[in-house]
Simulated assay, not measured.
Amino acid sequence: MMHNIPQLSDDEVEGYLKDMIAVLKDPKALLYDSEAQTAVTHLETLLNTRLILTTDMEKKAIESTLSVIEDVGTQCEEVSNAHKIRFQEIVEKETLRCQEKLQDLTNESIEKIRKETDNSLKGLQRERKNADLVEKNENILKDIIHLCKKKKEKCLENILLIGTAGCGRSAFINTVHKALSGRYIMKAKCGHGKCLSLTRTFQRFTNCGMKEEDIVNTDRYNDVKDIVPYLPSLIDMPPLGDAYNPQLQELLELAIGGYIPNGTSIESICKLQSENYPGFLKDYFATSDPDMKVGIVLLFYSGKGILPIQLKTKCEFK
């Protein structure tokens, strides 16, 4: 621009100098650049000295200024490129982190769905198993009803339930009653925790403890009410030990023979045995009650305990 002007006025030169100083003092790009500020110092010196500048001098000054500006532009470009690379690295890192987080969430969702599916399948299997069990129980009840209706005489058969403490005799009685009546009624008291057994006396549950008023379902009532008199009776014998001795043998013989009256305390019988001569109970309970005479003996034992071999052997012998 200046090559075509052989000579400039002082005002024009001053204007050009001030413009270049303003550019070199740009706070956004050149204010903190040392070379740019060195050029500013020289330009201000020229401006204050009021020298008459030749075209060659002005050309050199402009070229120097343009060189500084070019260098600063190059530096700015390098900084910009560095920021671009850093930004790209940050984007890639955050993208990878998000992908990993998304994968974790996906895996957690898949695991949650798998567990829920497994639980649902287990629930369906339990429901199906329960439904099969209910159907099986209903078929057994139908068989019982059919057999009872074929009988011509009311059932006088007694089933003696024996076993060690906590083996489930009372629970068996309540379960049989529930299967027949359709609802749970605690006919026999069950022990819990440290109190393994609550049975203290010989208890006879006539016709499995069934009464017509125990049946609340109309369909069940119509099916079962007529067979109640034909159901066997259950005799719950207080818990026995597993020792082979004459006292145990005597108790079993008297219980099976129907000599021990309903409601007799086991403590009182054992006391009579210990305070009197061997065989005293046979003399004491001399009369057999047909209603208490046993035709079937069921031996109970807990799966958590040991099979009472001696008691089992005596029952099989009898």
Score class of each variant (00 low, 15 high):
H3I: 05
N4S: 12
L17M: 12
K25C: 03
D26C: 02
P27A: 02
K28W: 01
H42P: 02
L43D: 05
R50K: 15
R50V: 04
M57A: 14
E58T: 13
E58D: 08
A61S: 10
I69T: 05
D71K: 01
Q75R: 14
E77V: 11
A82W: 12
I85V: 15
F87L: 15
Q88G: 12
E92I: 13
E92V: 14
R97C: 09
Q103V: 08
S109L: 15
I110D: 02
R114P: 01
E116Q: 13
N119T: 02
N119M: 02
L121Y: 07
Q125T: 12
A131D: 11
A131V: 04
N139R: 12
N139I: 09
I140N: 09
D143Q: 13
H146N: 12
H146E: 10
L147C: 11
C148P: 03
C148S: 14
K152C: 01
E153Y: 00
L156Y: 06
E157K: 12
I159M: 04
L160I: 04
T164Q: 11
C167W: 01
A171Q: 05
T175K: 00
H177W: 03
G193T: 07
R200Q: 10
Q203T: 15
Q203C: 12
K211H: 13
V216Y: 00
D223R: 14
D223Y: 11
V224G: 07
P232Q: 06
I235C: 09
D236T: 08
N245D: 15
A255L: 06
G257F: 08
E275S: 15
F280A: 06
A286E: 14
T287A: 04
V294K: 00
V297A: 10
L298P: 04
G303P: 00
G305E: 07
T313G: 00
